[in-house]
Amino acid sequence: MRRGPSAFNLASIVLGLAFLYAPIVILVAYSFNASRLVTVWGGFSTRWYVALLHDRQMLDAVWVTLRVGILSATAATLVGLLAAVALVRGGTGPRRTALAGGVYATLVMPEVILGLSLLLLFVAAGLPRGFWTVTASHATLTLAYTTVAIQARLASFDRSLEEAAQDLGCPPWKAFALVTLPVIAPAVAAAWMLAFTLSLDDLVIASFTSGPGATTLPMRLYSQVRLGVDPKINAVSTLLIGLVATGVIAAYLIQQRRARVPAE
């Protein structure tokens, strides 16, 4: 039996969570503030959400961000799946060492450096910067994360399931598609979500690698924020937080429900 939490333990948890959530709560609350001033509560209002709907630039940025996020997360998940298979199943050898090293290096590389290096690549290749360069860059940034997430699941996957499928008549690739992939699908979906969120959130790499006509939401927010606090930013932030929180909590609940039935 574990001892229960002491008063000090509870206080630490409460203060810690308050610290983590207070700014978010304040932000959300003021998105409904009729007043432009953060310190003055001017009553409940959705005027900033309405204003948002008429902000052409902001809506464009949202659209660009979503497209970049979906495409880059999909690319990163597909390539990450291959990388994870190679890392878990590829045995040892120089190829595996190079891949593991590359994945790890991307994971710890400061974003500023990654952004700068990618920009230099696109300049050297003579590619005009824009939608596709950001997408490729985000896929590169998130590839390491998807690889690690899928690799962890694949490593604990029971190989005898795949052998059973082969035994029952599947060639290896088909056993992977019909059995392994469906079983690890939650982890693959989680990896995609992670990549999508990271892409949605990225300012630094997008700033380096984007060009005219492909301004992402963080880039737009950043330029607005530098001009000062704008309640419209609160509104768009609240929408983003709501979207992500719903997704994450839903995923969590689904997983909980699954976990309640004993696993294979």
Binding site: L161, E163, Q166, D167, L168, P172, V179
Partner: peptide
Amino acid sequence: PPHRRPVHMMFQAYALFPHLTVAQNIAFG
């Protein structure tokens, strides 16, 4: 390769496909 052999195996920990029903498991082969 294993998938071309008319030899089937019952695995030690059974290796039932967790994402398929009992009937789908049996129908797999």
